[in-house]
Amino acid sequence: MTKQNIVIINYEAGNIQSVKYALERLGVSAEISNCEATIKHADKVIFPGVGEAAWAMNALKKNGLDKLIPQLKQPVLGVCLGMQLMCASSEEGNTKGLDIFPVETLKFPAEDKVPHMGWNQLNQLNGDLFKGIKNNDFVYFVHSYYVPVNKYTTSETNYIRPFSASLQKDNFYACQFHPEKSGDIGQEILSNFINL
């Protein structure tokens, strides 16, 4: 693996350390930063997130990151809440998102337990992130809101209904599951992102 400058966006939202450790297990070191110049000059950017959407969006705005992220030209990977914030809006706190993916994030109906928590299967795999990954491979999810299947969907998972397990548009990649917590499969997906 060539030496890369990978930046994890820091906006005080959750599992940032876990993402850094997962990259270290792949032999890649990453910088955690909320500095505009650092993020702009990275080879790859990871946009993690755990927590509440409206709160997280405000945290992004405080650092001007809401303007910066949609303009990035290098590969960007949104994870979990990061992916949801990359959409147009979320039902969580009626939050307006970054609108990179012009789709809505909705709340799971209470037809089954919410949050959707645990290991579930990927299907309809499509695109570079899933090289070497097979249909029905398991990854780890924890979320109460979901992005419906749409034209940017690159993999699907079924819980209550089929939803987007991942999205892609141009240089923007996103996954609803946590690759950093998804065992060997997750490591492979992260490695595919690093190797883009």
């Binding site: 350390q17 876990s18 450790y21 997962a22 270290e24 297990r25 780890y140 924890v142 946590h178 950093e180 917590k181 998804s182 065992g183 060997d184 997750g186 490591q187």
Partner: peptide
């Protein structure tokens, strides 16, 4: 543990 573990 967090450094080595790839599950939650």
């Amino acid at each position: 543990v967090a450094q080595v573990l790839n599950i939650p």
